[in-house]
Amino acid sequence: MKPIIKYPRQEYLARFSGETIDIGEVINSKIPVKASIQVDTLTHHTLVVGSTGSGKTHTVSIIVNELVRKTSKYKVLIIDWHGEYMKLINRAEYLEPRRMPLNIIEHNNIYEFIELLQDSLGLTPPQVYILEKIFENKKYMINNIYDLRNVLENIEDQGSWFRESRLSLLRKISPLTRDGLREVFDAYKDKIIDYINICENPIIIDASRIQDPYIRRIYVSILLKKIFKEAVKRKVWSRNKLLVVLEEAHNVLGRNNYIGIVARMLSEIRKFGVGLVIVSQSPSQLVDEAMLNTNTKIIHSIKSLNDLEVISKSLYLPLNIEKIIPYLDVGEAVLYTRGLKKPVIIKVKEI
């Protein structure tokens, strides 16, 4: 049975500059007051965490809808891991991965591609070595993942260790070439960047349409890498910003299975106009960069002691607020963002 919780009387000590979006109301404040986030802080990344059913998806939907309603300065891309957002986001453009295929192999960034495969597939050093040698010697024979598989199948072995590593590497890469995935990983040219720039409405990429979570993780990782690369090299979002919602973020930013390229970019990408909304059930499963590089944190109900410890250390929560977090109702959350002097408990508004 849920104990009777007495919410502390709260002061909303805020000093904001520029545009803000309202996401709800402060609970038990001395006077009725809206809970707001500065629009400019969104490029400094946002963390939304909470147990299943605590209201994370609803909160993210409020942020996106209010942002689009308030300003035209942001593009929005939602990477929807479970296919939950289509009915929640106003005037959204819905895409399946097959409608937005990715060019997985780029000859001018082979080592980045190999690193991405290393992180995504858990490649061993000998397997990385084999990939490097293949691209050094047969670079122009490989234009897609299917060509890479064929080269691996036919390359001459250089000893028992080479054969063992090659066959293991082949087993890891082969799932990417299954029937039905050619349309996902075999694009001659990426279309996603151009589509983001010309589309006036929020874009939802329904990653759940890739049924295998293993393949889904690779698709999302490659998509993020391409977005980051475009932001840094071409500065395409220096004027009109881009907000990327990353659902189930522990799949690419997990403490034990993170994608190195994505984790490193967290501290750099905000300088180029791209903000991430990192959404996860468990903050303790996320890499440290996800906690350190998010200026806005929205904490829904969390019951795990490990998760509570991570959040408490990150926000220096007062004990009276920390004790309430496991008992927050659906849609209630602790909010801390730039401009607030201390965290407050809020009720997120309805869509």
Rank of each mutant, 00 (worst) to 15 (best):
E19V: 13
K133S: 10
R338M: 12
R338K: 13
V64Y: 06
Y195T: 12
R163P: 02
V76G: 02
S36T: 08
R209T: 08
L253P: 00
L181F: 13
E136V: 09
I78G: 00
V128Y: 00
E115T: 09
S160V: 15
I104F: 11
I321E: 00
R15A: 12
L340Q: 01
S312K: 13
V60M: 08
K30W: 09
A290F: 07
G275E: 01
K2C: 10
K229M: 14
G83D: 07
D22V: 15
K342F: 05
R217K: 15
L335N: 00
K233G: 04
V33S: 03
R182G: 05
K73C: 11
L13C: 04
I105Q: 07
Y258C: 05
L13N: 09
I142S: 03
P101W: 08
N103C: 14
P343Q: 03
T46R: 11
S61I: 08
N240I: 14
R98W: 14
I218P: 00
R149L: 13
L246M: 11
E230M: 12
T337E: 01
M86E: 15
I345S: 00
V274T: 04
I63Q: 04
Y12F: 08
I269S: 02
P343C: 05
R270M: 09
S72I: 13
D119L: 02
F135M: 04
L167S: 08
N306Y: 14
D307T: 10
E350I: 15
M291H: 15
E115H: 10
I145L: 12
N295V: 12
H45L: 07
L266C: 07
N240L: 12
G83R: 06
P97M: 01
V39P: 00
G254P: 07
D147H: 09
P3M: 03
I31N: 09
E268Y: 13
P97V: 07
R217I: 04
L266P: 03
I205H: 05
P8A: 01
